[in-house]
Design a protein around this nucleic acid. Structure first.
Lengths: 343, 343
DNA sequence: AAAAGTTGTTAAAACGTTTTACCAATACTT
DNA sequence: AAGTATTGGTAAAACGTTTTAACAACTTTT
């Protein structure tokens, strides 16, 4: 690498003081004008105009850091998700970002990779950056940290998965029901040997999907058989996942399978492709969480579609309510129905 | 909504002063210890131990806002991308985040939606938040804003697409060559009527793909025909895009098509599905930017794969170098080869 | 024995805001 | 004419750090 060096010219950035001096008024006056308190503080129209003109011309932007230090809030919302490269999360993130942005809030996000330590660290980092509120798709084990946030009176909205130990806001889909309905749709088609491929992480939404699966079987007089449930280790290498699935698909005379997450479904489709086994009348598949792939696949794959837009909207609504209210609002759990898209 | 109210208990967060008082030393001493300058400032071993113990026990975390205000930097890198819900960007973002994180830097990201005004706004927001450096996949029209950042001596790394007007660092794939090779691979298979579906946005990487397409044709004595190039308006409704593609695919006796972006390829596959036209020997397809869909599609779709890992690594390397150097380093343009994955 | 270092520590300024409390001058009431 | 509001504005404290410059008390060098 070529390390030829240049001198660093120093360009002083403008401060409120510079504006005040230029306008011949006090810092206070400028501050009032910037913050829209000019009327309230009865600053004369002439002064307002003059200061605003100078601000516009000079391109002055208040230092948000100083502002945050003084006011104690940052207009930033921390978003903690499992993995931004998962399309479910990236799409939610995008929606949340858009909506927050329109209300003057910015988002800092980070991925936990479903790792408790990283999640805790992220919460700490956000805390020391004084974010105004938290939107979290939690991992197990951060209950206490969330309690601390709540004790500190910060708004916290959990989404996608609830944390049974903590009493806070939650927005998520009705996973039990969606799972139940998926299985019922299999049964209506005459399926008998219905498998479930799920992950081994113990989070509420995964458990619910599992429960929905079991309950639907039982309610329809099909005995629940443990060997038809494959639990894939989280973060396991995809090749290994495919091997495990192959075993399942080959050994039992399975005629339908519900995948509890979209990435598992994708691995499942890869598995089927390798086995040269076609999805169709004798072998039905439903994926949990829709994905562009499923629509395009030949044949198209049915999927449970979570109402992303609605989830994002609710999440942002809840947090903004909390942020604008001086007192703590009562916690809400919002369960939104998910939709089975049959293809 | 139930607005039952609770009182907000106030829990004072610890400051360095609290620690100093508790330890019976000055704030300065605590600060030195926190910042690893204890040795250098010859603080006694006993005091160091005592203060560290108190810090650990109390769970004190320095207020990063105050720290930023004082030092003028934030340990935050701003990442500006086109759209986090596009898998190319979300995967890059994730890699960059991971790598930055390991070096003690945090990432704030935001999407521009390829909108100049939003991009400018984001730069301003990052500026007022005093981010230490910028990683940007730029839109046209923000050249000046970037110049301002550079004049202010902030490290800026562009990626994915270069901005011809600005002299700064850039990391991207060799789009011209990858496109050229894709077309050549078509020609080797005996294709004659090769179409290009691209977008109308005038960014360098798109133009390069177009140039590669043209050049490969010319070099192989196939006349370039304007009517075989379809430029899709950015952000256009997908239904309309599909209509336009239908027209193209039906009207000319096209035997191969290169899609200049992965989302266009996905729309293209949907179009073909609707037309009941199969990808295969008589109709070849290559997508630019790989996507899980392409591997899984029946038949599998060839794609140009950008070396995400390498791009992310280079980007982060460049920016960290700049950040740790007190003087400005010479700008670098790093072009990384992209790989055509034939499926 | 005076000068020069070293060791261990600290007071106070500075970063750029917001906000409280206050002031001066004029206008309105009584 | 005295008191009271209103208008238009400001000085200074505070937010929680980092860092500079200094100091006291020793120790070593001359």
């Amino acid at each position: 690498m070529n390390n030829q060096q240049f001198e660093r010219p120093i360009m002083k950035t403008l401060s409120i003081k510079d504006i005040a001096v230029k306008a011949g008024v006090s810092i206070t006056t400028v501050s009032f004008i910037i913050n829209g308190k000019a009327k309230e503080k009865s600053i004369s129209e002439a002064v307002i105009k003059k200061v605003e003109k100078i601000i516009k011309e000079s391109g002055y932007k208040p230092n948000q850091i100083a502002r945050s230090l003084r006011t104690g809030n940052s207009n930033i919302i921390g978003l903690i998700i499992e993995d931004i490269s998962n399309s479910f999360f990236s799409r939610i993130a995008r929606l949340i970002e858009d909506k927050a942005y329109k209300k003057g809030y910015k988002i800092i996000y980070s991925s936990t990779e479903n790792n408790v330590d990283k999640a805790k660290e992220l919460i700490n980092m956000f805390k020391s950056r004084k974010v105004d509120g938290y939107i979290i798709s939690p991992t197990m084990g951060i209950e206490e940290d969330i309690q601390v946030l709540l004790a500190d009176n910060k708004p916290v909205i959990l989404f996608d998965r609830n944390l049974s130990g903590v009493d806070t806001n939650y927005v998520g889909a009705d996973h039990f029901k969606a799972s139940y309905q998926s299985i019922e749709s299999f049964i209506k088609k005459g399926k008998k040997k219905i498998a479930l491929v799920t992950t081994d992480i113990d989070v509420e939404q995964i458990i619910e999907r599992f429960e929905g699966y079991k309950q639907a079987l039982v309610d329809n007089n099909i005995p629940y058989a443990e060997e038809l449930v494959l639990k894939i280790q989280f973060n396991q290498d995809e090749a290994e996942t495919i091997e495990e699935m192959k075993k399942l698909f080959l050994s039992k005379d399975i005629d339908a399978v519900l995948f509890a997450t979209n990435y598992l479904a994708i691995s499942g489709l890869k598995t089927l492709k390798q086995l040269n086994k076609k999805v169709g009348d004798e072998f039905s598949v439903i994926a949990y969480d829709d994905h562009e792939i499923f629509e395009l696949h030949t044949p198209s794959i049915s999927a449970v579609q979570q109402p992303l837009e609605e989830i994002a909207e609710t999440v942002i609504q809840l947090i903004l309510n909390q942020l604008s209210s001086k007192s703590k609002l009562e916690n809400q759990k919002v369960i939104i129905p998910a939709k089975l898209i049959e293809r």
